[in-house]
Amino acid sequence: MVGSALFFVFAGLAIACAVSMVYHRNPLYSAISLVGVFISLSCIYVTLAAPFIAAVQILIYAGAIMVLVVFVIMLLNLDDDKPLNRLRYLYAVGGGLGLILLVQTFFIFYAVMRAPQQAVNGAETVGKTMNIGRGMYTEYLLPVEIVGVLLLMAIIGGVVLARRLAQPQLELVVDQELDERGLEEEKGDYRVAI
């Protein structure tokens, strides 16, 4: 009873926040709504006996990724999103896709309803940190290693993207490039290369 009530409260909250995220044109409102989705999902994870995943959800998604997004929004000082300008057919595409996905969702709902699943007894211990750690460093060692390499690549990519060449050096590079292409008249416009 309590489990159901909690599920419906947090599910309603998650859906409301998700809709509000898509609805708002201001990126910061979208970001706040998305944090709401993350927190409600984390509460649902707790009711699903996955405390570790719930805590990591808050720590990584709400505490790190979305803080970065909010930081970027504040740094760029963005205005409201413009309404669709020339790609009006996207409304139809989006609506159609949404309809198909919703129908699919209800199909899945009925398909699973026919074979009702009771939670396996003793499933409460699965989400314990110890079990997750053991699985991570025995059976699933290779995926963990691959994720580690991926994160390293992301770090290097982030550094490369964020690095700005110093201005004199930049002009040298651009001038050399333009010389090679034989585009003498475009010298002095370094905007594209930053």
């Binding site: 489990g3 599920f7 859906i15 300008n85 209800f106 899945i108 709902f109 699973v112 009702p116």
Partner: peptide, 28 residues
């Protein structure tokens, strides 16, 4: 009474739909 597996999948499906539609509707 615990919510069934189907309810979780339905919630997940709805959220996924909202996200997919949002990707198309958002311009920034």
């Amino acid at each position: 009474m615990e919510p069934s597996l189907a309810s979780y999948l339905a919630l997940s499906g709805i959220l996924f739909t909202i996200g997919a539609v949002g990707v198309i509707f958002k311009r920034n």
